[in-house]
Design a protein around this nucleic acid. Structure first.
Lengths: 343, 343
DNA sequence: GGTGAAATCCAAAGCGCTTTGGAAAACTGA
DNA sequence: TCAGTTTTCCAAAGCGCTTTGGATTTCACC
């Protein structure tokens, strides 16, 4: 069923039907009702493509997911973020189009999306330090919003980020308050902007407590369970083992716990653990009482909000770029406790 | 830059330029080269919408992800599957459009996709028992392919599935061979088709070994770490605790391990564990030597293949529906060992 | 050099919608 | 009753592409 058929069916012109359906005022209420009902019974909805052609809008947002062929890891966050953004889109009648892209092809992909007029804007995932995509998108004039930020790029642009620095500083402070002095950081890849900021928060706290930064207590890598396990095992093996560990991801934290328990130690007593928790739906940090003390911030929520921001900036193109900094909440669970006294 | 401008620039008609770009034979090689170069330097690519309108193709595949508002869980498999499918699409010049949908809205969404002519076909995720979506899509005449199968629907349709039944039967047999007799199953939600089949495989093996099915040894729920942990803790607490546990997901298996170790038992010695492993990129089952003995089948690979199947069936509409049954490989890790002798 | 065939190109219609510029019909109020 | 509004509707152009049907040019061959 298309507009032509529908309007013929109603004995009206396409103009009138189109106007009735799109809420224009120059249609009598009676006609409008009649049209709307017909549209429903014939299950008519306008072709996105034709509509897009006519209006110049795509009514779609692109999500470009870089997937370096080197470390072929799909970000575990991704599903939840998308779910959040998807809610927003469907509420606004937008579609989400996804491109999984090899790092090297990114430029080409953005140019393609732009020149094919396939999307009205894009969301940038996983920004790194000095992220080149941001400049590229600004040059292209394709509206965008970044999930995270890119240190080193100073012109204004739209982003939404968790305050990773303050979250990790607070987490470290918290451990200091419990008496810990040897605090380790098991971080994500530090080319990623978020990981960089987390380390900054961590070191800032150390400095504030007059504790030297010890490279032996810092690890950086893909945040897998095994990575958390191995890092912890190694660090606990040394003489001067940490009494507390901060992990960048709940998945790694599971590995941290395993290494601790394997050594016959008790988490929250012998070794305290704080982790960042993205509140992923399939990886919940316990029930009412969290297992891990965590800096918590829902990625799903971030998806919802960032999508909202992007749509808003698309319909108000002259607004200056908006940015949102979310504070993670520190949830105290049973994985932390006072530092064990030295015997 | 659009076709009109480009062709004007070249002093050719739109027809010729279009033909040159689309590989039609009635263009001289010299002209074609000239056109291709111009397209590259002007960074021209045809508008998807206009092209779609003209050809009647969408050059896009829809992925509809149901997200019941009750259990708001995003399938952890999802990211990897999408990554696989995405590879295929970009290789074939297709776009992937994603709809996150509340269960109740699904019918409406499919009808919308169809009547808006937004996609050439869809992938169905997470089929349940007697999945109603399959019949709906067949009625609509929208090409589709299912990731998994739907027991209870008997007309032919395109699907790709892991042989869940044989995988879990093999896993159970394997444990029997090691001397285990009390074997537990920690399964996914059994309204999901895959979980149902896994249980069938499990019970088939029990029957073949003349062991009665014991409801106390079977759990079914969302496959979280906590679920694995709690189920295991409960079962190990009883008199007649299992000596082996089969888990439906690596995430739950992490919880299983935790419960085992918490009780001071050793996995692979006191209690054996076999898990299904979807080979998710962010949740690897150890390095070279797998931690868990597992029935393994890459979800990413499934995504690649299923997308391929769907595209193939779209370009060959008269082919009968194809279906692929993948066999999971049984990888022996260190989480299994001979059944402990009774003292 | 002339013929028919092959190679090369083009104008214009059409895909399904929105929107502009008017026309016709239905109301007003004097 | 009739001019002036307001309401209600419509024909047709245009969005950027593909494709049909045809025109023109080039080529091979006698």
């Amino acid at each position: 069923m298309n507009l032509k058929e529908l309007s013929h069916n109603l004995g009206l012109s396409q103009t009138t039907v189109s106007r009735a359906l799109n809420g224009y005022p120059e249609v009598s209420p009676a006609t409008r009702r009649r049209v709307e009902e017909a549209a429903k019974t014939f299950n008519y909805s306008p072709s996105t493509r034709a509509k897009g052609l006519a209006t110049g809008q795509a009514l779609a947002i692109g999500h470009v997911i870089p997937l370096s062929s080197k470390h072929e890891m799909v970000n575990p966050i991704f599903g939840d973020f998308i779910a959040g953004a998807g809610e927003t889109y469907s509420r606004h009648g937008y579609e989400m189009i996804l491109s999984i892209v090899d790092d090297d092809d990114e430029r080409r992909i953005y140019e393609g999306l732009k020149s094919r007029r396939a999307v009205d804007g894009v969301i940038v995932h996983g920004p790194r330090m000095n992220e080149p995509r941001i400049g590229l998108l600004q040059d292209l004039g394709l509206p965008f919003a970044v999930h995270g930020r890119a240190s080193g790029y100073d012109k204004p642009y739209a982003w939404l980020d968790v305050n990773n620095r303050s979250a990790f500083q607070r987490a470290t402070d918290f451990l200091f308050d419990l008496g810990h002095r040897r605090i380790a950081l098991i971080n994500g890849l530090e080319v990623m902007d978020f990981a960089h900021r987390r380390r900054e928060g961590y070191t800032a706290s150390l400095r504030a407590h007059d504790i030297a930064v010890d490279a032996a207590l810092m690890r950086s890598g893909e945040m897998t369970e095994v990575f958390g396990y191995q890092s912890t095992r190694d660090m606990l093996a040394g003489d001067d083992a940490p009494t507390a560990i901060i992990s960048s991801s709940l998945i790694s934290a599971l590995g941290v716990r395993r290494a601790i328990e394997e050594k016959g130690l008790v988490m929250g007593k012998d070794v305290s653990v704080v982790t960042h928790d993205d509140a992923l739906s399939y990886l919940q940090n316990g029930g009412d009482v969290p297992i891990f003390t965590a800096t918590r911030s829902s990625v799903r929520d971030a998806g919802r909000k960032l999508a909202e921001m992007l749509l808003h900036s698309i319909s108000n193109p002259n607004l200056p770029p908006q940015s949102v900094l979310l504070e993670a909440e520190l949830m105290v669970g049973s994985s932390t406790g006072p530092a064990p006294r030295k015997d």
